[in-house]
């Protein structure tokens, strides 16, 4: 059963310098329990699509259902069942980690006791236990990112949207996060919709990939199918496949850092 399905989902921004067609009509479906890698070069419309699917941004065209709820008619139903980790996070630097986690649980309508227990549990899962009494401003970039992810998992959502979840994480934390995502899916059947510029991550984690460029879907399939089709061999690198699909590489600052 499709947990996410969109039909012609589009968003145009009106700016002083004319309209920006960020998303030009996206059709896709994501099955229950699937991990979908949503790829595309900078400015392709990934974040805009996620913001529409999480009810933050009204589409200017098309329709979608998320977790059985119509995006436009039942946004509250969508919100109850989805978690969202934004590309740039969402914690207040002046507030303590524990308070942010508990507040987040309460915003998702957990009782006070539940929210407090859940904060401990999440801190444990994301390796934040020793940091609960710190202000968010006093976390390192990677610790902050782990907190952002914990915030998105608070209510054990049926659908989890992760916008570049591992940007800024060290290799150890990245593979920990991959394990966590796999574990959540195995344990709770969570559907995961994630964007990333790390192609090794997309390759390792995703059941299926959707590649967008200039606001449109330009390719989709399992990593193996895409490699075979666009780079000529199932053993080709996803990097070459991505280049063949979009006609260009990922921006240099977004590629996996190479030790020099």
């Amino acid at each position: 059963m499709a947990v996410i399905s969109t039909a012609g989902l589009a968003r145009t921004f009106d700016t002083k310098r004319g309209p920006v067609h960020a998303v030009r009509g996206i059709d896709l479906t994501v099955e229950a329990g699937e991990i979908l890698g949503f790829l595309g070069p900078n400015g392709a419309g990934k974040t805009t699509t996620l913001r529409m699917l999480t009810t933050l941004l009204a589409p200017t065209g098309g329709a979608a259902t998320v977790a059985g709820c119509d995006l436009l008619r039942d946004p509250v139903g969508v919100r109850r069942q989805t978690g969202y980790v934004a590309q740039s996070g969402g914690v207040d630097p002046s507030i303590r980690v524990r308070e942010e986690l508990v507040t987040q649980g309460r915003l998702y309508r957990l009782s006070k006791a539940e929210a407090e227990a859940r904060a401990e549990e999440l801190a444990h899962e994301l390796n934040l236990t020793g940091l609960l009494e710190r202000k968010c401003a006093a976390l390192s970039g990677g610790q902050r990112r782990r907190l952002d992810i914990a915030m998105g998992l608070t209510h054990r959502p049926a659908v989890l949207f992760l916008d570049e979840p591992t940007t800024g994480l060290d290799p150890g934390s990245r593979s920990d996060l991959w394990d966590l995502v796999r574990r959540i899916r195995a344990q709770w059947g969570t559907t995961v919709f994630l964007t990333t510029h790390y192609l090794d991550e997309a390759d390792a984690l995703s059941d299926r990939l959707v590649v967008v460029d200039q606001g449109r879907v330009v390719a989709e399939g399992t990593p193996t199918a895409l490699k075979t089709r666009y780079a000529g061999s199932p053993d080709a690198s996803l990097q070459d496949t991505f280049l063949a699909i979009t006609g260009r590489g990922v921006a240099p600052q977004d590629t996996t850092p190479i030790a020099v």
Partner: peptide
């Protein structure tokens, strides 16, 4: 300031 930190969107995405 909260908007710049993403706090407003984070709250708007919850059912509150």
């Amino acid at each position: 300031i909260e908007k710049q930190h993403g706090v407003v969107e984070r709250m708007r995405v919850t059912p509150v």
